[in-house]
Write a protein that binds this DNA or RNA. Structure first.
Lengths: 256, 256
DNA sequence: ATCATTTAGCTAACGCCGTTTACTCTAATG
DNA sequence: CATTAGAGTAAACGGCGTTAGCTAAATGAT
């Protein structure tokens, strides 16, 4: 019914996929030119050469189109950072993580408007409150953009976990993470639950989880601030970022 | 011409100020309810009980109204953090800075939508590029929201400078900031220029500037991430923030 | 007190926007 | 070949920011 006897996509299906791609391409062009709030359904229709109402054959509404665009962008970001990691051998964990950190920032800076859309998506489009998306839910019920965002962080998180495992095995010299302030049981549980399960992917010692979240917050914070133009430097941002990351790595004491 | 012989504000001026306040109050109400992009000029007019066109007697356009609102919000934030600092004696620099850090986050979390507007303002409303606002310009030419943002950061920056001066005088035990990675001359100059002149307010040693910017980036990053719902925790955010700040202060070695 | 001027507000319109409804035509299906 | 599902259109609705031209009231000067 949805495909012919040969099993390949129908002619109609091919046409449809092509149109969808064209719509998304137009949306992205407008995103780059006019920012997240400058994406107009009517303008897309104009560019694609079609009536505004026709777009509703492909997306339920503008929101759905933005969400789909967000997901595509995450896929692109994930592919890019994965490629950067894979430039190093599988056991060069530290190099791979550093490469990821740099590639993340590079993509975000090279695709500012896109990144803005990705991080400002929840409040802009979701009817849920800002804390409405709760990771405790079954993965199917979490909105797709949040899922993609998790996938993105997992790429680095799992590398960290692999690194930990090797230091535990003795394959690598023991690298103690930072000493940790006292943490209440509630926060401990939440860190273990959320981060261990959703980001790192396997149970890690609390000190490692704490280190990972600390690093995550610093890296992500830097990138977001740069995207929003809130950094205290403007000309030497590349070096500033690198310097901050370097200082962080040294503080964690996991690198010579 | 603009005021009567007694020197006080004219009746008309009082009425006008009152109307402006009413408009702003309505704008803020909508901001809180519907977020930054949900502020509608027509809805404000409806609420104030006036025709949409009438609002143009008070603000050039919606943008100008948003900018004015932003400035008011910064004033509120600055007043709040200043009050928190002044809860400690003038020479308790560390306590004052910690109090500032906590009050900043508390205000941002207690006024989420407002904070979103403040940090996402530049891209949304300015015709300039995201890096268009350059601090080298004369202060009058910098857009008012950026000026307020600077004023906000200066509140903490000057405290840091005062702290440094006392350690230099010998009034306080010498507190060395973190060891610093190698920094190119270009970045050094920029840090000294921008941060020293605009944030801290007086020339400080590079190592202190570096420490301040590092701390700034971490604090601001945390707050922005929380505002955007990007933190890796959701239930114990208060403690998470406090823990991160505590770890940071320890790393800087300026506190027992 | 009278007149000129400034000012606040109105009405009406323009051109955008997202979205819905009802209709047409065309291409695939049985 | 008849039927049906899909892609597309035209027209409308209500909302938006903004502008132009008008009215009436408050103000300041004579």
């Amino acid at each position: 019914m949805t495909s012919n006897t040969a099993g390949g996509p129908t002619r109609r299906e091919r046409m449809r996929a092509e149109t969808i791609a064209e719509i998304k391409a137009s949306a992205r062009r407008q995103l780059q030119e006019h920012g997240p709030s400058g994406i107009s359904l009517r303008a897309i229709a104009r560019e694609v050469g079609v009536t505004p109402a026709a777009l509703y054959r492909y997306f339920d509404n503008l929101d759905a189109l933005l969400i789909a665009t967000c997901c595509d962008l995450y896929d692109e970001l994930i592919a890019e950072t994965r490629k950067a990691m894979d430039a190093f051998p599988p056991d060069a964990h530290l190099e791979r993580m550093k490469s990821w950190i740099w590639a993340f920032r590079a993509w975000a800076v090279g695709n500012r408007r896109e990144f803005e859309l990705m991080i400002s998506y929840p409040e802009a489009n979701s009817a849920m409150s800002i804390n409405g998306v709760r990771l405790e839910q079954a993965p199917e019920n979490v909105d797709p953009v949040t899922m993609k965002s998790l996938e993105h962080s997992q790429l680095c998180g799992r590398e960290m976990a692999a690194f930990y495992r090797k230091t535990e095995n003795g394959e690598l010299p023991p690298a103690g993470p930072v000493e940790m302030p006292e943490i209440s049981e509630g926060l401990q549980d939440e860190l273990m639950d959320k981060c261990s399960a959703f980001i790192v992917g396997e149970p890690l010692p609390l000190s490692w989880i704490f280190t990972f979240t600390s690093a995550w917050v610093r890296v992500f914070g830097l990138v977001v601030m740069e995207a929003f133009g809130s950094l205290p430097v403007q000309d030497n941002v590349d070096e500033f970022y690198k310097t901050q990351i370097l200082a962080m790595i040294r503080e964690f004491g996991i690198d010579g």
